[in-house]
């Protein structure tokens, strides 16, 4: 019973990680990509936990949630547009 539930948990986790990675690489909105990267770090920590490597999960949690997310967010303001049609933040923030 436990093995069965763990298997379903792993399958759902891996499929959602692949889905996040697909959208992360495919999007043109860089802010959306940054937020997707932060979420990917969280699910990656869960995946390390399931691979029975809690130390790597601890490092992934500290780096992904505490270091690279704020670094990307503060780099986002200083970045120049490198390509036409690439958006740093949302253009229309009406609601």
């Amino acid at each position: 019973m436990s093995y069965f539930i763990f298997t379903i948990f792993d399958i759902v986790l891996v499929l959602s990680m692949v889905w996040i990675a697909w959208h992360l690489l495919g999007t043109e909105d860089i802010f959306k990509a940054v937020v997707l990267f932060i979420s990917f770090g969280l699910l990656m920590a869960l995946a390390w936990v399931r691979m029975r490597a809690p130390d790597v999960a601890l490092a992934e949690a500290a780096l992904g949630a505490g270091l690279t997310g704020p670094l990307f967010l503060s780099a986002l303001r200083r970045m120049n547009r490198t390509r036409k049609g690439e958006r740093r933040l949302d253009s229309d923030e009406t609601r």
């Binding site: 436990s2 802010f31 932060i38 969280l42 920590a45 936990v49 809690p54 999960a57 601890l58 949690a61 500290a62 949630a65 505490g66 997310g69 704020p70 967010l73 503060s74 986002l76 303001r77 933040l89």
Partner: peptide, 29 residues
Amino acid sequence: GMGNPVLLDIALVFALLAALTTMTFIRRT
């Protein structure tokens, strides 16, 4: 569920660093 009490420390790190990303977003972005 996995019988591993080390995972509480990972949850503690997540809870500590949860506010950091949002505050950086508000202050810098």
